[in-house]
C-alpha cells in the first residue's frame, strides 16, 4: 500500500535521512523511533507529499491521511462542525463512528476552543476516521492523551489495521500494538551532503 524506496529527506535545506526503504501491506503498522531531530516529522511530511524528497520515491502517498503536531481545529467551530468539515472535504459522510471511537459523544456541540488539550487531540485523531484513507501517517499522536485515551487510540488503530488499513506512527511511548514493526531511524542519519544537492554544489 505504501512503498518507500531509497528515500532521502531534507529539513531546512539540510539532509537529515538517507536511504530509507520500507514497504507496508494491508494490516501492517510501522512505528518510527529515534531521538528528537532524527527526522521523524520530516519523513512523515515527505510521505504525505507536503515536501519533495531529495531523492528516492514514495508510492501510495496520495492515499495517505496525515496527522501532525497540530490538530487543524477551528476554535470557533463546534466539535461536529469541525469533523463534518473534514468529512465533506474528503467526500465521506459519516461522523458518528469517529465520534464514538474517540469517546467524543456528549461534546458534540462544544466549541473546539473550549476543549481540553486531550479532548482536542482526540478530535484531531477522530478526523483520521472520516478521511476514509487507507494509510495513516501519524506524528506523535499520543501527545497530551491520558492512559485511557491512549488505549482508545490503540484500539482505533487496531480496528483500522483489521479493516485492511496501514499506519506509520512516530512515537516515543509503547502503544500496546505488539504486531507493529519498529523502524529505528538512527542508522539512516544523513552523514554527508547528498550528491547533486545544493550543499554539495557549494562545497
Amino acid at each position: 500500500m505504501l512503498t518507500v524506496s531509497d528515500l532521502s529527506v531534507a529539513r531546512g535545506g539540510l539532509p537529515v535521512l538517507d536511504g530509507v526503504s520500507f514497504a507496508l501491506g494491508p494490516g501492517e503498522a510501522l512505528v518510527l523511533r529515534g531521538p528528537n531531530g532524527s527526522g521523524k516529522t520530516t519523513l512523515l511530511r515527505t510521505l504525505a507529499g507536503l515536501q519533495p524528497p531529495l531523492s528516492g520515491t514514495v508510492e501510495g502517498g496520495e492515499a495517505l491521511a496525515y496527522a501532525g503536531h497540530l490538530d487543524g481545529l477551528k476554535s470557533a467551530l463546534s466539535v461536529t462542525e469541525n469533523l463534518r468539515f473534514w468529512a465533506r472535504v474528503f467526500g465521506t459522510g459519516e461522523i458518528g463512528p469517529a465520534l464514538a471511537a474517540f469517546d467524543l459523544a456528549g461534546l458534540e456541540d462544544r466549541l473546539a476552543g473550549n476543549l481540553s488539550a486531550g479532548q482536542k487531540r482526540r478530535l484531531g485523531l477522530a478526523r483520521l476516521l472520516v478521511t476514509g484513507r487507507a494509510v495513516w501517517a501519524l506524528d506523535e499522536p499520543t501527545v497530551s492523551l491520558d492512559a485511557g485515551a491512549v488505549a482508545l487510540f490503540a484500539g482505533a488503530v487496531r480496528r483500522h489495521l483489521e479493516g485492511g488499513g496501514a499506519a506509520v506512527i512516530a512515537t516515543h511511548i509503547d502503544l500496546g500494538l505488539p504486531e507493529a514493526r519498529v523502524l529505528d531511524l538512527g542508522p539512516y542519519k544523513a552523514r554527508r551532503p547528498a550528491p547533486g544537492s545544493a550543499e554539495e554544489a557549494f562545497l
Partner: peptide
C-alpha cells in the same frame, strides 16, 4: 555564492 557556502559550512 560565498555567503551561501558559509551558511552551508556553518550548518554542517
Amino acid at each position: 555564492i560565498r555567503a551561501r557556502r558559509m551558511r552551508v559550512l556553518l550548518a554542517r
